[in-house]
């Protein structure tokens, strides 16, 4: 399993041609208390850089983009009842959706954990 990061603060953990997507700990910290999450449904087609989910904190609504293109296999239903999971465990049980990758070469431009740490440190 390999975890990649985007400059829009999503993480994607890849195993073969399937992957899990969420937002980073840095992102949840910036958003603050999350009160609503809308995740894509199974079968939904997402494209790299396109809007895939919505996350709302007390102060603002934000879009979550798909790090890569693919077909959604599952949205995290637990977030509907308890959106605060994104605050408490953003890179674990607060995941947003799983998908089947359309083109694994789209992962090439993403950051690894060390590169993302450097990226966040400079913000």
């Amino acid at each position: 399993m390999t975890r990649y990061f985007t400059d829009e603060h999503e993480w994607i953990e890849v195993e073969g041609d399937t992957a899990t997507v969420g937002i980073t700990d840095y992102a949840q910290g910036q958003l603050g208390d999350i009160v609503f999450v809308e995740v894509p449904e199974e079968g939904c087609e997402v494209s790299k850089g396109g809007e895939a989910a919505v996350v709302e904190s007390v102060k603002a609504a934000s879009d979550v983009y798909a790090p890569v293109s693919g077909t959604v296999t599952e949205g995290n239903a637990a977030l509907t009842d308890d959106p605060s999971l994104v605050n408490s465990d953003p890179e674990g049980s607060g995941w947003f959706f799983k998908l089947t990758l359309a083109d694994t070469s789209e992962l090439d431009g993403l950051m690894d954990e060390a590169a993302y740490k450097d990226f966040v440190a400079k913000l």
């Binding site: 829009e8 992102a27 603002a60 983009y65």
Partner: peptide, 8 residues
């Protein structure tokens, strides 16, 4: 992610 913060 984009953050269209109301205050900003």
């Amino acid at each position: 992610m984009t953050d269209d913060t109301l205050f900003e």
